[in-house]
Design a protein around this nucleic acid. Structure first.
Lengths: 148, 148
DNA sequence: TGCGATTGAATCGTGTGCGATTTAAATTGC
DNA sequence: GCAATTTAAATCGCACACGATTCAATCGCA
């Protein structure tokens, strides 16, 4: 017979649980900044390049507009970003940082440092693991359609 | 200055995105079984040991009762499990498989095989990566409270 | 024995996530 | 130059996920 597989042997479950664990770790770090974890990722994207469109942010985060639109609207309500239609292409909505949003970058500088420490890993180990998971993610997305 | 960090260098983001990628991969595999991914995890737990309480399932999956209660109720509606108060301790709710729920195990046997193939990794590589992420998860949960 | 503390589920409110659909704007074909 | 198609956001419905709270059952201990 094929070996019965438990949760403790599923890579997918480990990734799922690790994702929740990161979320729990970030929550108290981001709460003082008034950010949720996905909102923090949007901020990281915008700190890297301001004025991206919703779909560009979606490409960077691998999220759909149906997820991002309400999320970004909440960030706009919080005064962190501004949304405006692109004059060149009225279909696009550009998201740009407010002064408050820009100022938050300095206040959030410690966040990735804290998170890195919490992993209990050295920088090189983190990077190596990150790369392995990045390769895994690419494989999953590529072979997702070719079923089995 | 401290190096500005982008999404492409954050381990947490990679895990977050990989979790979504797994979800996308599993969706078409589980759809024919009438299961969502978290529901599938509950089934795996119950196939391993039937009749667990909500909190035991929660411990295995690292989920709260506020997440599991409605999820399991949906599974009950679908006729996969049955919920009943424990006679020994009326606070506990035991979740047991129905015949249909038990029968689903055979129909789902290919799921982890398909997922394994989609990773593009050999069994030993999967297990090695799984172990690394398991260690990471434990570190994150352990150091979460000791802030920084 | 009795009662305060603890435990196990459930409930509630908020915030993701996504597939399907809709709407409006831009692009393509002919 | 205009109809058909494509593209970008937004909307809608559904299903997690969690913290805070509630409620009932059990436990602990004087």
């Amino acid at each position: 017979m094929t070996q019965k597989i438990g949760l403790e042997h599923l890579l997918c479950f480990e990734v799922y649980a690790a994702s929740h664990a990161f979320n729990k770790l970030y929550k108290p770090l981001l709460e003082p900044l008034g950010l949720t974890y996905p909102q923090y990722l949007v901020m990281v994207a915008l700190w890297g390049r301001d004025g991206q469109s919703v779909s560009e942010i979606g490409a960077a985060l691998e999220l759909e507009s149906s997820t991002l639109t309400p999320l970004i609207k909440r960030m706009e309500q919080a005064g962190l970003v501004q949304r405006q239609r692109d004059a060149e292409d009225e279909r696009r909505v550009r998201v740009s940082l407010t002064d408050r949003g820009r100022a938050l970058e300095a206040q959030a500088a410690h966040v990735p440092v804290c998170a890195g420490q919490a992993t209990g890993l050295e920088f090189e180990q983190i990077e190596a693991l990150r790369q392995q998971i990045a390769d895994l993610r690419k494989a999953l997305l590529a072979r997702g359609d070719s079923a089995c």
